[in-house]
Design a binder for these strands. Structure first.
Lengths: 344, 344
DNA sequence: ATGAAAGCGCTAACAG
DNA sequence: CTGTTAGCGCTTTCAT
């Protein structure tokens, strides 16, 4: 209850070192020159008392919280951990704490923000499921100019948000082109992500573009739900099979869906890659452990986290800075599910 | 930089409502009775100004941070997300913020704590890789009695930590017994987790106990590294096969290892479950999507997070409370990798 | 180079 | 039921 009662304060340190609190603060923050001798005495007092500045007091006095907020969706799998790691490391390195909040899946209306300008200096938003208007609400509820960086999502017009997004179109294009030109596939099915999901839409565009470039027609019948879920994908592919659809390859908008597709194909005794070639997107943890190992488009997940923090801190320190969108490159990782013999 | 400058303060609200700041504070915190009329005026002023109390000031005045710290290891996969979700939800519900820190894998020495009594009211520690002595250090560095709850780990003697752990022994026992009594397996290999990992050790004990109970001898040759990793497990099982070891079942200390085992067995054209039956532990996300679906021991992961928060908050509110260890039950989930025909 | 003192925005006695 | 007034622990002018 009385969390700090038994704790040394800056006054205790000052007393012990025989200086004023101002001086202690100065050596703690290297905010002004202090004679070597005094500094040493202060340091010693700090160590002896095991003094650690209290965040609340410091934040109040500094008028900033030195804390970044991270808003995450409730759904999600292994996908998140690398991002989280990237974000935490970058934040810590820059001297920021990381406060996290998870957006309940059911509740469409955003809560009176648990995270916001009242307790963070800026916000990282994994906006996967948020609509355009929810994003805007988010921006309006905060003080004008409150720094917000979107992950995997282009900001609404004039929102002032920065963002870091993936090179989805090109990545998808590469994968599909590989299926067509190297492995001679002609009828390729697309397992899409959730409707309205930006990454999925863009991957689909890359898919269509590759077909077009190589003179293949786009068949809407061969676009089915994947929903970033193993189960949904498996069901969709089974459905496709049952309907008697013919296809010689599947491009999945994500590796989870690819995994589901694989399950369904195996269940139907269809050989991958001989009868149906398969490619995914993300290069998630599991990709190389599928059987056959999955050819997929690598998304630099941890780096995305780091870059997002970099952008956020930049706009915290320099609020005059223009919003910026970082586009992170992706590239095809060839394993065996496409028909190639090399790599694993 | 000047994060709060354009922000309404409690004084602004008070002025607008024509009351004192004390009154505003009272209606905000329901900390004393306020006449309906005044309360309404205050509420309106709050809304009009979009006032949100500043966490730092509030925390300082209250002498507590209303924040829980969560210390996570750097390694980890989908395993973490359910826990994180459980923890975040429980914390939020109880009015606490959640601050996270990730322990770098390389650095064995703990950093001057990013999380601690200077900015949290208590700590949740996922101590997977921490040694006994590191745990003690953690406790000593904090003010005596600073609430700490361990996840998946029994606290050191007299540490004063609480903990929530899994019923590993019994869970493992059940799984192995099932393999033996229902499917008549006699030579069962064990894919263990990291050496020194408590969960893994206990699962191994359950494994041995089940063998003993059913009159089967324990063969150290059949205990190999799994390391909570798909890759390591796959390699270990391949090795076992290459060495000509004979076994008719594998019990893996975790589902990732089970998945790796499956990969290796398939690669060797060994049929699961006909030739080798397989069981895992955790009932992780992927378990039901493996082919065949994995029989495994369910660990109530999200619930573990919630329970840990409950324990932590209890000792924050009542520091006289005794440290407590919650043992969470596990139970066998039967799918097909063991040889059963039902469920998926 | 150092100290005195005024806050930061809020809560919590204490009066009335 | 409401207002006045000390702080909470730290940073930061402003003097010296």
């Amino acid at each position: 209850m009385y969390a700090q009662h038994s704790h040394a304060t800056i006054a205790d340190v000052a007393a012990r070192a025989g200086v004023s609190t101002a001086t202690v603060s100065r050596v703690l923050n290297r905010t002004a020159a202090v004679s070597a001798g005094t500094a040493a005495r202060v340091q010693q007092a700090v160590t002896e008392l095991g003094f650690v500045p209290q965040a609340a007091a410091r934040n109040l006095a500094r008028r900033k919280s030195s804390t970044l907020g991270l808003l995450l969706p409730a759904v999600g799998t292994d996908f998140f951990y690398p991002i989280l790691r990237g974000i935490e490391a970058a934040a810590r390195q820059a001297g920021f704490d990381l406060l996290i909040g998870i957006q309940p899946a059911q509740r469409r209306r955003l809560e009176p923000a648990p995270l916001g300008d009242h307790n963070t200096d800026g916000l990282l938003v994994f906006a996967g499921e948020l609509t355009e208007s929810e994003l805007k609400t988010l921006g309006e509820r905060a003080r004008p100019g409150f720094p917000i960086v979107l992950l995997y999502r282009t900001p609404p017009q004039d929102s002032g948000f920065s963002a870091v997004v993936l090179e989805n179109r090109n990545g998808a294009y590469q994968a599909v082109e590989h299926l067509v030109t190297v492995h001679g596939r002609q009828k390729i099915a697309f397992l899409r992500g959730p409707l309205g999901n930006q990454d999925s839409e863009q991957r689909m565009e890359g898919f269509r573009q590759a077909l077009a470039t190589h003179g293949l027609s786009f068949d809407p019948q061969l676009v089915v739900a994947g929903n970033y879920s193993v189960a949904v994908a498996a069901q969709s592919v089974s459905g496709l099979l049952k309907d008697g659809a013919t296809f010689d390859a599947i491009f999945a908008a994500d590796d989870d869906s690819a995994s589901g597709a694989l399950t369904a194909l195996k269940a139907a005794a269809i050989h991958v890659p001989e009868q149906v070639a398969l490619a995914g997107f993300d290069d998630s943890f599991m990709a190389s452990y599928l059987d056959p190992p999955l050819t997929t488009v690598r998304a630099p997940t941890e780096q995305l986290g780091r870059e997002a923090v970099r952008l956020l801190i930049r706009s915290i320190h320099d609020r005059a800075s223009e919003p910026q969108i970082t586009l992170l490159p992706t590239h095809l990782v060839i394993r065996r599910s496409c028909g190639c013999e090399n790599g694993r």
